[in-house]
Simulated assay, not measured.
Amino acid sequence: MDFEASASPRFFVLTKGALGSRYDTDVETVDPVNRTDAPLCPQCGDIIGMRTWLPPYRVKLELHGEELGDFIRGPGYAQLISEQFTEAFRAEGLTGLEGFHPVEVLRVRARKKKAGKPITVPRYYVVSPCFGRAAVDLVLNRVRFSKPHSCSECRSTGIDAINGFILEPGTWGGEDIFRPRGMQGVIVVSERFKDFVNRHGLTNMVFTPTEQYVWDPSNLGPAPLPIA
């Protein structure tokens, strides 16, 4: 897909490996499960995200693939990352992840039995990508919104389909991983973050350029671009 303008520097949507992949894993939280209240926009007061998972961080993992990866999607905005991931992220000074709380893995259930081969369980930490200042461009995008944005701060509204998007120039705060205004449920990363993951061989992460990212469950197609 071609945009009339593109964001610079480049950004990517981060998703976990596909269902049925080598690292396919589900997370089940273990009681007691505590959460904060949902965050509110400081300007309009609307809910702008999901409730945050609080300690104790105790989980059971169900492994559908062959081995546990360095990145596992958790509840809400929480992500489980391995100790290798954590140490490398901190050592290289990347930004945008919050938390780094140890996770207690009580059990790993493997769907695919391996004769005589134990499952290696890395030490995991729970992190959450920050809610950044970067904002989805309201003009140069291919997003179908349920209704027009009413708040210039959070830009929060329903989304019916995404067929590529860019970030508004000048809004990015420099974070390497974040959730943008106007699309809080999507994790966006910098090119530096993508290169970091590839260089360290970290697993179970897929990167799609934001302008090529598609989420269109009802096959609505891309929103029309404005006429120049």
Rank of each mutant, 00 (worst) to 15 (best):
M1V: 09
E4S: 07
A5E: 14
A5D: 01
S6G: 11
R10Y: 01
F11I: 00
F12C: 10
V13H: 12
T15C: 01
T15W: 01
K16C: 08
A18W: 03
L19F: 08
S21V: 12
D24T: 03
D24Q: 12
E28T: 10
N34T: 04
N34C: 05
R35P: 00
T36D: 09
D37F: 10
L40A: 12
C41L: 13
Q43G: 02
Q43V: 10
C44L: 09
C44F: 13
G45T: 01
D46E: 15
I48E: 04
I48R: 02
M50Y: 01
M50F: 03
M50I: 05
R51D: 13
T52P: 00
W53R: 01
W53H: 08
P56C: 13
V59Y: 02
K60V: 09
L61D: 02
L63V: 02
E66R: 11
L68N: 10
G69Q: 06
D70N: 11
I72A: 05
I72Y: 06
G74Q: 07
G76S: 08
A78N: 03
Q79H: 14
L80R: 03
L80S: 08
I81Q: 03
S82D: 11
E83C: 03
E83M: 03
Q84G: 13
F85A: 09
R90M: 15
R90L: 14
G93Y: 08
L94G: 09
L97S: 00
E98W: 06
V105L: 05
V105D: 06
V105I: 15
R109M: 11
K112C: 08
K113Y: 12
K113D: 01
A115T: 03
K117Q: 12
T120D: 14
V121K: 12
P122E: 05
R123W: 02
V126Y: 02
S128M: 07
F131M: 03
A134Y: 09
A135D: 01
D137I: 07
R142D: 12
V143N: 00
F145P: 00
S146T: 13
K147T: 09
K147F: 06
H149V: 15
H149E: 12
H149S: 10
S150K: 14
S152C: 06
C154Y: 04
R155M: 11
R155H: 13
G158C: 08
G158L: 09
G158N: 03
I159M: 06
D160I: 00
D160M: 02
A161G: 10
N163C: 14
G164S: 10
I166A: 01
L167V: 07
E168D: 13
G170Q: 06
W172G: 06
G173S: 14
E175I: 03
P180W: 00
R181W: 00
G185C: 09
G185D: 13
I187T: 15
V188D: 04
K194H: 07
F196T: 07
F196Y: 05
R199V: 03
H200G: 02
G201V: 12
T203A: 05
T203Q: 09
M205H: 06
M205R: 08
T208P: 09
P209H: 12
E211M: 07
E211I: 02
V214N: 10
S218Q: 14
S218C: 10
N219I: 01
N219E: 14
L220C: 10
P224C: 09
P224K: 14
L225D: 10
L225G: 07
I227A: 06
I227C: 04
A228H: 08
